[in-house]
């Protein structure tokens, strides 16, 4: 029970500080993997990101349900998801009327200009963690994985293929993983 409450508290904090949508929740979950290895590993987190990208629903919500289920079963998933959405529910209800004025406030505008590059850095740091476990095993670079990474990075940026849904690249990588035995 204490463990469940602790998890809900962690997801409440994530919901409170993850500003900018789904991707912004990833650094917080990477932090969970660091502080609570008994709940999830970085490899688990990566699996969850792939599953969340390939299934319907907002990524942040999917990730919370998945982590909660992983740790405490069905009710863990429900509890984690509700904890994640609770802070924004409270905040939006409290400030719903003043929101338009808030958005035009120069202090708010300034804060968002400095916040966005910092959040970009946070997501990059989470990407770096997944990058390390995906491309290296026991300190050695996996050549096949490195080649696949470069190819996928190219295709997700190339103007002709960048609009394709992430599910396509996840499927390609799964097939490559099976064929070349990553």
């Amino acid at each position: 029970m204490r463990e469940l409450l602790l998890m809900c508290w962690e997801f409440f904090k994530t919901g409170l500080f993850a500003i900018g949508g789904g991707m912004a929740t990833i650094p917080f979950l990477a932090g969970l993997a660091q502080n609570y290895p008994q709940w999830l590993s970085v490899a688990d987190l990566s699996d969850m990101i792939a599953i969340s990208e390939s299934t319907p629903g907002p990524i942040g919500v999917n990730l919370a349900t998945y982590v909660g289920f992983h740790v405490f079963g069905v009710w863990g998933g429900v509890a984690a998801t509700l904890s994640l959405v609770l802070p924004s529910y409270i905040i939006l209800i409290l400030v719903a009327k003043a929101l338009d004025r808030f958005m035009k406030n120069r202090f708010a505008k300034g804060a968002f200009i400095t916040l966005r590059p910092a959040v970009t850095g946070l997501i990059a740091a989470a990407g770096y963690q997944v990058f390390r476990i995906a491309l290296f095993r026991e300190g050695a670079l996996l050549m096949g994985a490195a080649l696949l990474f470069c190819a996928l990075l190219f295709f997700t940026q190339w103007s002709k293929t960048q609009k394709l849904h992430p599910v396509v690249w996840i499927a390609v990588a799964a097939v490559a993983g099976v064929i070349f035995q990553f």
């Binding site: 699996d47 990101i49 997501i123 994985a145 990474f149 996928l152 996840i170 990588a173 993983g177």
Partner: peptide
């Protein structure tokens, strides 16, 4: 193996 491959895709998607 499939999930090991998928991890590479996730890294590429985040980057």
């Amino acid at each position: 193996h499939a999930f090991a491959g998928i991890r590479v895709a996730v890294a590429a998607l985040i980057v």
